[in-house]
C-alpha cells in the first residue's frame, strides 16, 4: 500500500489527477488525503489544475472546409431521388388544398433563362409583402452582376445582394425546370450566367393563409432531407394559375443549385 505524506504528495497527487493510479489504490489514497487537512487542501488545489474545455470556442467556418464528395453519379442519383421525394411530398400537400377561392390568386412567372438567379426565401417574402402590384426583377448583363429589383410604379431600383452562390471549383448541379415526371439535370463547372432572366410578379394573395403556412412549414421537412448539404437554402412559391395549382421550388447551396416546377394534375 502506498502511503502519501508531505514528502511524496506532489507526485502522487499528480498521478491521481492524471488517472495514472488504478481504482483500489486510488480509493485508499483519497481516504488518506481526506484524513489530513494539509493533504486535503493540496488535493483541492491539484484538482483545479485540470483545464475545462471552453465549449463556447468553436470554429465558425467549417462549411468552407467541407469538400464535395466528387461522386457525381451518386450525387446526381441522390439529388434526383431527393427532389422527387421532396416534390412528391409537396404534391400531396398541395392536392389537399381547397380550390382557389378567387381569381386574384396568381403569380405569373416568365422565366426566359433556364438558369434563374437565386432569390432566397427571405427576399421573396420581402417583395411579396410589399403593397405595390408589380415588380420587375431583371438582370441584363452577361456576367455575374447582381440583378436589380425595379418597382414599376415608382421606378425605384434596388440591388439584389443575396447572390453569392457560384463558387469556382465546386460542382454545381442544375435541375432544369420540368414537370415532376421528367426531371432533367446536368453538371456544369464554374458556372457563368450568360442569359437574361425576368420575373414578373403580380399581387400575391392566398386567402387561406393557414394552408400557406402548412406548406411553408413543410419546407423544413424538405430541408431535413437535404440537411448535409452545406449552406442550403430553399425557396418555395405556391402558385395557382387558371385554377391549376403548381409549385416552384428552388434549392441553393454551396454545391447545388436546383430549380423545378411541379404542376398538380
Amino acid at each position: 500500500m502506498i502511503e502519501i505524506n508531505k514528502e511524496n504528495f506532489e507526485m502522487i497527487m499528480f498521478d491521481l489527477v492524471e488517472g495514472n493510479i488504478g481504482e483500489p489504490q486510488k480509493s485508499e489514497l483519497l481516504n488518506q488525503i481526506n484524513n489530513d487537512e494539509f493533504l486535503k487542501k493540496e488535493w483541492e488545489l491539484m484538482k483545479l489544475t485540470v483545464l475545462e474545455v471552453d465549449e463556447n470556442l468553436i470554429f465558425d467556418n467549417k462549411d468552407k472546409l467541407i469538400k464535395s464528395t466528387g461522386n457525381i453519379k451518386f450525387f446526381n442519383f441522390y439529388i434526383v431521388s431527393s427532389i422527387a421525394a421532396s416534390l412528391l411530398l409537396l404534391a400531396i400537400i398541395l392536392l389537399k388544398f381547397n380550390k382557389p377561392e378567387t381569381r386574384k390568386i396568381s403569380i405569373k412567372t416568365d422565366v426566359k433563362s433556364k438558369i434563374e438567379h437565386y432569390k432566397n426565401i427571405e427576399k421573396s417574402k420581402e417583395f411579396l409583402s410589399k403593397k405595390t402590384d408589380k415588380f420587375n426583377i431583371s438582370s441584363t448583363t452577361k456576367s455575374r452582376q447582381k440583378p436589380i429589383i425595379k418597382d414599376k410604379n415608382t421606378n425605384e431600383i434596388t440591388n439584389f445582394d443575396s447572390i453569392n452562390i457560384f463558387k469556382p471549383n465546386y460542382d454545381i448541379i442544375i435541375v432544369k425546370k420540368q414537370n415532376i415526371e421528367k426531371i432533367n439535370y446536368s453538371t456544369i463547372y464554374d458556372l457563368e450566367i450568360k442569359e437574361t432572366d425576368f420575373m414578373n410578379i403580380e399581387k400575391y394573395k392566398l386567402k387561406n393563409k393557414s394552408k400557406y403556412d402548412i406548406l411553408i412549414s413543410n419546407t423544413y421537412k424538405i430541408k431535413r432531407v437535404w440537411d448535409d448539404l452545406p449552406n442550403l437554402k430553399i425557396k418555395i412559391i405556391p402558385k395557382v394559375k387558371n385554377y391549376k395549382p403548381s409549385i416552384d421550388i428552388t434549392l441553393k447551396g454551396d454545391i447545388i443549385y436546383a430549380n423545378a416546377t411541379i404542376e398538380i394534375k
Binding site: 474545455v53 471552453d54 470556442l57 468553436i58 470554429f59 467549417k62 472546409l65 467541407i66 469538400k67 464535395s68 464528395t69 466528387g70
Partner: peptide, 24 residues
C-alpha cells in the same frame, strides 16, 4: 482517407483544433 472521411474529420475535429490553437 476518402473525401467523406475528410468531411467527418472537419466536423469532428475543427472545433477542437481551433480551441487548442486559440487558447495558445
Amino acid at each position: 482517407m476518402t473525401p467523406s472521411q475528410y468531411n467527418i474529420c472537419v466536423k469532428q475535429y475543427a472545433d477542437g483544433v481551433y480551441r487548442f490553437i486559440m487558447k495558445n
